[in-house]
Design a protein around this nucleic acid. Structure first.
Lengths: 142, 142
DNA sequence: CTCATATAGTTACATTCGTAACTATAATTT
DNA sequence: AAATTATAGTTACGAATGTAACTATATGAG
């Protein structure tokens, strides 16, 4: 073992381990209720939160790979949870927007999500939760 | 949009986003140099750090799914980077241990990993880095 | 205006992944 | 000891993923 290298302070490991734990905990909920993948849930939630967006804007918000977004949009569209609107100025672009059914599903999952988030919040305590959120946001600028 | 629910304080999103950013940054290194997958790198690193382990112990350390570990071990074994030793008392178990070639590869990646980790460390600053590591470790007990 | 380059998004293909079923061995019960 | 249950690890198979190539449209240079 190299002395300068320690798995316990190697951020890619720590992050990935914790992230899997946290995201998989909530995944069970949307997977069991709606048979959604993680990408689909993230796209739904992003559209639910921000309203109409293009695929590229969803990518900017989520960091998802463009093929994941493309497939998730297709799949959510097939459920009739979103509709595509043509953009007048740029025919390459679709304005993606949740239908009322899509919004209902989103709202239902928000409730579950808020409850889940609260559980983590309580576990960490308000201060540490806030600190963690802040640090994670800061990493986005790396 | 539900008022109680905000993507910017929803931990599964924050964590996953940040985690992908951080782990993918380093993945380029082991992927380009050795054509390794993330699971393979994690298994290699775990064995490098802790010495001989069983597959179950690797799972305990990393949180990886058992099929990922099984496949990663097979693949690393094929590179001659690890060897399996039979356990005297329990024939189901293999003691997995890096060969000297495996250790060389691990050491080389440690150097790159330490450099990468340092970059993040410098970006966050020592205090925030330490705080973040601590919070991530705390989440393992959730 | 035409040609070259860039961007938005989709798709084909090969790889990777997760679930569930399986084999082999160990531990426990009766 | 035989039967049952539990554990370690592997594998088959379908689902999800990433890379690279592709289509369509837009933008910019000459």
């Amino acid at each position: 073992m190299k002395s300068e290298f320690d798995l316990h302070s190697f951020l890619p490991f720590l992050m990935h381990h914790a992230s899997e734990k946290i995201s998989l905990g909530f995944r069970d909920i949307y997977r069991d209720r709606y048979r959604m993948t993680r990408s689909e849930w993230r796209v739904l939630a992003t559209l639910g939160q921000y309203g109409a967006l293009t695929a590229t804007e969803i990518i900017a918000h989520t960091g998802l790979h463009k093929t994941k977004v493309s497939r998730a949009v297709f799949s959510i569209e097939q459920r009739r949870w979103l509709k595509r609107g043509q953009d007048e100025n740029d025919k390459r672009i679709h304005r993606l927007e949740l239908t009322s059914q899509g919004n209902s599903a989103f709202n239902a999952l928000c409730d579950a999500g808020a409850a889940y988030n609260q559980k983590v919040h309580d576990f960490l305590g308000a201060d540490d939760f806030k600190r963690l959120s802040g640090l994670l946001e800061k990493l986005n600028d790396l």
